[in-house]
Simulated scan of single mutants.
Amino acid sequence: MNLIILEPEDFVAEDRVRLVDRRLVHARKHLKAAPGDRLRVGLLDDRVGEAEVLRIDREALELRVALNADPPPASSLTLAVALPRPATLEKVLQQGTALGIKRFCLFHCRRVEKSYWDASALAPAALRRQLLLGLEQSCDTHLPTIELHRRFLPFAEDRLASARTQGPVLVGDPLGATPCPLGLSGSATVVLGPEGGFIDYERERFAALGDALISLGPRILRVETAAVALLARLAQLPS
């Protein structure tokens, strides 16, 4: 936790917060915080800054907060991922959020296990927790959004239609004929398939819709590895 994220309900006065949950545990156990120490904090969907520790014990952490800086700039990329197994989903959401992704799309395709759609990892609270972990890691405060698309064709043909008007749709696939570009500028949507890859029909639909099938090379990567590799390669870093 590189940033303690605050929410409006944490405030007990205009510039003071009281925390009693895992943020208290982290400050005591890992940061070894003591009265007078200064900690990095940020208000959810708002600014970042520092907070002075006024009190810390087993019951509560009380801070005096000053928010005076902007969080890191957001990525211009959207990440769409064929719904993976829950443990992988958690990694993708955390790592994608840490890399600045502000919109995730989770979609169904042939090789996605239907049972994944009933997993507790898709509960709103569970998804939010993974996003918060990514924000805490990267000192960001702006919570991403997550879209769920349970049918492949409506996702590929209808949902991505609006994305195509804003920038390219790049479909990551080991069989892709185009090497992944480096340093893409502007908006784009990155689409990743399941562990077993897209079936031929799905690849053909993306190609017919004008999407580029891009590759990182012949190695078969785990979804979470491919996501980080593609996002890092495509990222347009601020000057």
Rank of each mutant, 00 (worst) to 15 (best):
L6Y: 06
V12T: 15
R16V: 12
R18N: 03
V20M: 13
D21Q: 13
V25K: 08
H26M: 03
H26L: 01
A27I: 08
H30T: 15
L31I: 00
G36C: 10
D37P: 02
L39V: 02
R40P: 01
G42L: 06
L43I: 10
D46G: 05
D46T: 06
R47G: 11
V48K: 02
G49P: 01
E52C: 12
R55C: 10
I56F: 08
D57E: 07
R64L: 10
A66L: 14
A66D: 03
L67D: 09
N68H: 14
D70Q: 14
P72R: 07
A74V: 01
A74M: 12
T78S: 08
V81R: 07
L83F: 01
P86N: 05
T88D: 06
L89G: 00
L89P: 00
L89Y: 00
Q95F: 07
G96N: 09
A98F: 04
I101G: 09
I101M: 02
K102M: 08
F107P: 09
F107A: 07
H108N: 11
H108Q: 15
C109Q: 00
K114A: 15
D118T: 15
D118P: 08
D118L: 08
S120C: 13
L132F: 00
Q137V: 13
S138T: 09
C139Y: 03
L143N: 04
L153S: 14
D158F: 14
R159P: 12
L160V: 07
A161I: 14
V169P: 03
V171G: 03
V171L: 05
V171R: 06
D173E: 04
P174D: 03
P174Y: 03
P174R: 06
L175N: 05
A177I: 01
T178I: 01
P179R: 07
P179W: 08
L182E: 08
L184C: 12
G186R: 14
A188C: 13
T189D: 10
V190A: 09
E195D: 09
F198V: 08
E202S: 14
E204C: 10
R205E: 05
A207D: 02
L209F: 09
I214T: 00
L216G: 14
R219S: 14
R222D: 00
E224D: 12
A229L: 12
L230S: 04
L230D: 08
L231S: 07
A232K: 10
R233K: 01
L234T: 02
Q236Y: 09
L237F: 11
P238A: 03
